[in-house]
Design a protein around this nucleic acid. Structure first.
Lengths: 204, 204
DNA sequence: TCGTGGGCATGACATCTGTCATACGACAGT
DNA sequence: ACTGTCGTATGACAGATGTCATGCCCACGA
């Protein structure tokens, strides 16, 4: 209890990362011992610095914070995991929890919640926004199959059916079938809307 | 010179905003005297607190940081303007400068540049990333007409031609014409790619 | 072992999208 | 006065997209 809490901070935007570090630095019982800017540097950094809590942004190059969380959970199970994100997408919350996260915070929550969350997870508590939790439970699980998600993700940048077919080694008709079922499952009118709502829900 | 620099901080994500405030709070000569979370609260706050420098995030509800900058520039010309953004889009830089910004920073620049920029703009200097400046000059101006931009923006969420026509009070054929010319000007294959590249360039 | 669902494919059809030619009025610049 | 550009519109056409029926193979759970 008496020694300071060692925190790893993973966030790709330097200015935000260092600002968050400054914020946590104001707390007497918390020390940011290592910062990384990429998801695929998290594990090594956590090992090297024997951290108590990892603070992981989701949107990062190399690997997402959720992927990093899953890896840490497997390799260093005693490290507590706080997942931080810009977007309060219910699907994100769901996958973060499935990856072993102990806390899930959105960046537009009050700053005080950050240090608070760090202390709480270390005490064995879980921290999640009740509103988001309700939304995650209400919307149910991702209805898309793996292939549907793959195709939708690939279609997100405006690629044409022919390009998607080549890219995914499928026939053009199959691509259209997957997109069609995805469009119906999401109850929208075309692929662009499908991409949009899948993103919003965190299903993409 | 001797009294502290009064800063207004506008950024919608509380955690980031307060973290940036903490960061600036570490500097002896800088004081964040007021924080706002919306673009349309900037002017009143700047007036009420007689600030020296306004730090404006671009992506905000109410009004963008660029719109807020233009307004401040007109109403309170002695306030120096630092525009801050997640995305280093050349078109953003261009419109920020046209709106009277004195500095343009991207959030993945080192945190030290923030305080530095505040001091520099107050000293009458301009602060911009040379690489971004080059890109902004190289890519030239936005080739889209007002209507083309409007239609493209409206089409971004996957709306169909019929919906766009209704929304914009145009005939369906006209909508298609605008999208067609936009697609050609941007040298892409369909509306989705057009939206994508227009966004990337900061032209949307 | 049977049924179900996923992954994959084809063909046919209707609709949506993108292109092009053409046109007219407004307005700015030469 | 002439030209160019923008906003708006139409009609025709080709190609892309979305839907549907149907079929095959495979794995998995009842």
């Amino acid at each position: 209890m008496s020694h300071t809490i060692k925190v790893l901070l993973a966030e790709d935007q330097s200015m935000v990362r260092e600002a968050l570090a400054a914020l946590l630095g104001l707390e007497d019982d918390i020390e940011v011992v290592v910062q990384v800017a990429r998801g695929d540097e998290v594990l090594a950094a956590a090992r090297a610095h024997d951290v108590d809590v990892a603070l992981l942004d989701i949107e990062m190059p190399g690997a997402t914070g959720i992927e990093a969380a899953a890896l840490l959970h497997r390799e260093l199970p005693r490290v507590k995991l706080v997942v931080l994100t810009t977007f309060g997408r219910p699907g994100y919350l769901r996958s973060a929890m499935e990856s072993g996260a102990d806390a899930f915070l959105v960046k537009d929550a009050p700053a005080a919640q950050l240090a608070e969350a760090v202390r709480k997870v270390l005490a064995g508590e879980r921290v999640i926004d009740p509103t988001l939790a309700a939304a995650a439970l209400a919307e149910g699980a991702n209805p898309l199959t793996d292939r549907e998600r793959e195709v939708l993700r690939a279609a997100a940048d405006g690629s044409t059916n022919a390009e998607l077919a080549k890219l995914l080694h499928l026939s053009q008709g199959t691509v259209r079938n997957y997109l069609s079922t995805a469009i119906q499952k999401l109850a929208v009118r075309n692929r662009a809307e499908a991409v949009r709502t899948a993103r919003e829900k965190g299903w993409l």
